[in-house]
């Protein structure tokens, strides 16, 4: 007998409910349980970086190593890490109330080092500041992502889910350190991943590996034997933009007040 309207509605209601339940269950099955790499526990690490300004010589090895390791586009303006040079003029004794304005430059992000002979004269204070993603514990970029395509992993690294990212650029705008960019090839957000594929295999990051003076050091704050604890205790430590309370985990020794 042909189904009447009431029966038809009842059948399609049941079909809808069962299909949605089944597809939810199927998705769950397909996704599987996220497995840690064998031997690497997500809850055993809390990654950060320690940077010693007084040792940085502005050679640009870190910038070149990062671009090589992570296949970053070679054009300028795409940097996962870069080096800035600050040149602070001396206070003029004739006009001591005039506050000296630092000059900041970063030619091609420091990729070729700083090739000019630095024409600044005596009395100028000059230094280099390597910068990268600070892997903030209270990250503004994670907060603003509308779909959860960027996140802080349980071991403290802020990562991008390339499969989910829409390229809306909200995170690029939100980052106070300017460390995010849109990869021109995939049109998704990209940034320093703290060489996640290396640190989870017991290697150090490419930038720390390449640094000849030991100015950059990968640190694991959860490891009681890590040298970071002595580093934080024995030195004057700053993070970039502390007033923004981002929980930045890149710790600078010897960071001058002129650095923004």
């Amino acid at each position: 007998m042909a189904p009447d309207r009431r029966e038809f509605l009842a059948q399609s209601g049941k079909l809808l409910v069962l299909t949605s339940l089944a597809s939810a269950a199927w998705e769950y099955v397909l996704a599987g349980t996220p497995e840690d790499a064998p031997g690497y526990r997500l809850d055993a690490h809390w990654w950060g970086m320690a940077i010693d300004i007084e040792r940085c010589i502005g050679c640009g090895n870190c910038v070149r190593a990062c671009k090589t390791e992570n296949d970053v586009p070679l054009e300028a303006a795409y940097f996962r890490t870069w080096v800035e040079r600050y040149r602070v003029p001396p206070i003029d004794p004739q006009h001591p109330q005039v506050e000296p304005n630092p000059e900041v430059d970063s030619p091609n992000g420091g990729y070729d080092g700083f090739p000019d002979k630095d024409p600044r004269g005596e009395g100028w204070k000059t230094f280099f500041v390597p910068k990268l993603c600070n892997h903030c514990a209270h990250s503004p970029c994670v907060q603003v992502c509308p779909i959860g395509a960027t996140f802080e992993s349980p071991d403290g690294v802020v990562l991008v889910d390339k499969k989910r990212c829409l390229g809306c650029r909200y995170c690029v705008q939100a980052c106070p350190y300017g460390c995010r960019f849109i990869d021109p090839r995939t049109h998704t957000a990209d940034k320093c991943t703290l060489c996640y594929h290396r640190i989870t295999r017991g290697l150090t990051t490419a930038c720390c590996e390449a640094c000849p003076t030991g100015a950059r050091l990968l640190v694991d704050l959860k490891n009681p034997n890590d040298p970071v604890h002595a580093f934080l205790k024995n030195n004057s430590i700053q993070v970039l933009k502390p007033n923004m309370a981002t929980g930045a985990k890149v710790y600078y020794r010897g960071l001058d007040g002129a650095v923004r």
Partner: peptide
């Protein structure tokens, strides 16, 4: 399916970020 396991993100993305052969 694995969204929300650790937080507001797809848990599989952690593994995706490990998939790169080191060059150094």
């Amino acid at each position: 399916g694995d969204f929300g396991v650790y937080g507001f993100y797809r848990a599989g993305a952690i593994e995706d970020n490990r998939e790169r052969t080191p060059k150094f």
